[in-house]
Amino acid sequence: ELREAFAKVDTDGNGYISFNELNDLFKAACLPLPGYRVREITENLMATGDLDQDGRISFDEFIKIFHGLKSTDVAKTFRKAINK
């Protein structure tokens, strides 16, 4: 299930999730959020999830993000976006 969610976000299939891919995910989900809020959520996920600070999120980092977000608003938003 997590591998499928990761693949859905990794639209270019390079094995990593970029800032733009995350941002595009939230935009495509048509969530009722202003653009600046989408950017804040994306920046927050990148800042906390990109553990090796290479500017992208690997599958291992994605798993840690996903499990670390349990019930936060960001987690709910992220799950809604993935499930669209």
Rank of each mutant, 00 (worst) to 15 (best):
F19R: 06
I63K: 11
K84L: 09
R56M: 12
N23C: 07
G35I: 04
N23R: 08
K64R: 10
V38P: 02
V38A: 06
L25M: 05
P32N: 14
G15N: 02
K64T: 06
F62H: 00
T42N: 04
G68H: 15
G68M: 15
K84T: 14
A28L: 12
G13C: 06
G13I: 00
K80Q: 11
K84N: 12
D50K: 15
R39K: 13
I17R: 00
I57K: 00
A28E: 14
L31Q: 10
I63S: 11
Y16K: 04
L51N: 05
H67L: 04
V74E: 15
N83V: 11
E43R: 08
D54V: 09
S71L: 08
D73A: 10
V9R: 01
N20Y: 06
V74G: 14
D60I: 01
F62R: 00
I17F: 01
A81E: 14
N83H: 12
L45F: 10
D24C: 05
V9G: 01
G35L: 12
Y36P: 15
I41Q: 03
S18R: 09
F78Q: 15
K27T: 12
T72F: 11
F6M: 00
L51R: 07
R79Q: 14
F6D: 01
I41P: 01
T42I: 15
G15Y: 00
P34F: 03
K80T: 12
D54P: 13
D24G: 04
D60T: 08
V9L: 10
A28Q: 11
H67S: 12
V9N: 00
K27N: 07
E61W: 01
N14F: 02
L31N: 12
D60G: 07
F66D: 01
A81S: 13
D10W: 01
Q53N: 12
V9C: 01
G55R: 07
F66L: 15
S18E: 08
E21A: 05
R39V: 05
A29I: 15
L22K: 00
F66I: 10
V9Y: 09
I65D: 01
L25P: 00
F19K: 08
K27A: 09
F26K: 00
F6A: 01
F59S: 02
V74Y: 12
N14M: 03
K76H: 13
Q53P: 13
I65K: 03
L2I: 02
L45G: 02
C30F: 05
F62V: 12
L51V: 12
G49L: 06
A5G: 01
S58C: 04
N14E: 04
G49Y: 11
I57V: 07
K80R: 11
D50I: 02
